[in-house]
Design a protein around this nucleic acid. Structure first.
Length: 430
RNA sequence: UCCUCGGUAGCUCAAUUGGCAGAGCGGUUGGCUGUUAACCAAUAGGUUGCAGGUUCGAGUCCUGCCCGAGGAGCCA
């Protein structure tokens, strides 16, 4: 008998097939018994009908518990009463293992309990849907860059020094010296961009920040494109195109998962180019008008991001931040050296910063001065300075956080549900 | 790190002024000829996070500790 997956079972009407999976739930009503079977691609209702209690499958039905692994065989039947319109009329049940006391029931559970059982929670419908969206977002990101002639450059995870400062780095032993887990591939990407023109890196990054909010993970995934000769405006357009490409993919390919998540697609369908752009100085009065106490020179906090996302329904690009609140490598505005040619993409609906990017300093003297001002060890940046000595060009890039993007698209409250095994401030199990 | 809140059955929660620790789900047993987190009936299930204190009496009040959640700062 042919083994088929539930997502494609509609292609086998009135045929005998085999489904391998787990018991999601079971019900009975007198002489009709139902087993909901899930196989990783969907959930299927299977039926046993009999007028006689001695029916050979009834005894097996009675033994089934939630998450029991089994192989079922039967005939595919269309029936309007079945969820999904298709069900399997059973001829045989082969039990692989009867699961005892599965802890996650179809009723409510608290977050701490579910996080403790994350390895099992992944089997639940909603978690399944979010991670389907995540996989689609990652696939879209790769297709977007690969399709535009970008080369994938894997940057190292073990690094000898800080990218943006040492306080938020995980330290580890590297034989007889210290090493740090990467918090960005950007500096290395600037080198590969000078070799390949358009590059991107995509991998996990690690930040030892004691952040305890719904928007932060200790370990998260980031895609970082870097383009030689690109200016700030070019990188903003690239970011817009990337976000629109991801949205279009998820909206067409994962519609059923968004429905499972009860995500209203309308706000996502309305996102259009160009995104609204505001300079930092244009944003300040709007924020103050709405009650923010922000002053020139302050960075945006959570309240400011919330105000911005409440005013505008689509992502908003904030540009030209005060240089002193931004990273050392960001290019100063030639007309206003106190401002950095940087951009933050703030997601609508309060999901915060999806993208942070900038034009990078390409002038050797300015970069050396910035390294000095920030008390960074010059020796560690020798190779980085070389990029400005041997054929320097203006260049720009950004980083997009995968989990925040998935959280925004899925409208999931907490970012921890957008990655299979989240690393959080006080949780590293399971 | 700081602020706020919480910890009672396997799970989600209740318990009046300090006065016999209780319900739903899940489990078990039985019933129901199409269920949709099915439903109905019965039943088992407790060191109230830990340590100490006040009291005739503490789940409840006090002190300390442990664990967790929400938020802030920082960021993607």
């Amino acid at each position: 008998m042919k083994w088929v997956y539930i997502e494609e079972i509609g292609a086998y009407p009135d045929q005998d097939v085999e489904v391998r999976g787990w018991v999601y739930n079971k019900r009975s009503s007198g002489k009709v018994r139902f087993i909901l079977v899930r196989d990783g691609t969907g959930i299927l209702q299977t039926t046993i009908f009999g007028t006689d209690e001695s029916h050979p499958l009834f005894k097996k039905f009675d033994a089934l518990t939630q998450e029991t692994s089994l192989i079922v065989r039967g005939r595919v039947r269309e029936d309007k009463r079945a969820p999904g319109g298709v069900e399997l009329s059973l001829q045989d049940i082969e039990i692989l293992q009867v699961a005892q006391d599965y802890p996650i029931t179809p009723k409510e559970h608290s977050t701490p309990f579910l996080m403790e059982h994350r390895h099992l929670w992944l089997r639940s419908r909603k978690q399944h849907a979010v991670l389907q969206v995540r996989a689609e977002v990652i696939k879209a990101i790769r297709d977007f860059f690969d399709g535009r002639g970008f080369r994938l450059m894997d940057t190292p995870i073990l690094t000898p020094s800080a990218c943006e400062g040492t306080t938020t780095l995980f330290e580890t032993q590297y034989f007889d010296q210290k090493a740090y887990l990467s918090q960005s591939g950007q500096l290395y990407n600037e080198a590969t961009a000078m070799a390949f023109g358009k590059v991107y890196c995509f991998g996990p990054t690690f930040r030892a920040e004691k952040s305890k909010t719904r928007r932060h993970l200790i370990e998260f995934w980031m895609v970082e494109p870097e383009v030689a000769f690109a200016l700030l405006e070019d990188t903003i357009e690239l970011g817009e195109d990337l976000i629109l490409f991801i949205l279009e993919r998820v909206l067409t390919r994962r519609k059923s998962d968004l429905e499972e998540l009860e995500r209203d697609a309308a706000p996502l369908e309305q996102v259009k180019k160009p995104f609204l752009r505001l300079t930092y100085e244009e944003a300040l009065p709007k924020l103050q008008e709405k009650g923010s106490t922000i002053q020139w020179g302050d960075d945006f906090g959570a309240p400011e991001e919330t105000i911005i996302s409440d005013i505008y329904p689509s992502p908003v690009c904030i540009t030209h931040f005060p240089a002193k609140i931004k990273a050392f490598y960001m290019q100063p505005d030639p007309e206003r050296p106190d401002l950095a040619l940087a951009v933050d993409f703030l997601a609508s609906e309060g999901y915060g910063e999806l993208i942070g990017g900038s034009q990078r300093i390409h002038d050797l003297d300015i970069l050396e001065q910035r390294i000095k001002e920030n008390n960074l060890p010059r020796e560690a940046y020798q190779w980085y300075l070389d990029l400005r000595k041997y054929g320097t060009v203006p260049h720009s890039g950004f980083g997009l956080g995968v989990e925040r993007t998935v959280a925004w698209i899925s409208k999931i409250k907490h970012i921890r549900e957008t990655i299979p095994f989240p690393r959080l401030l006080y949780r590293i199990y399971p």
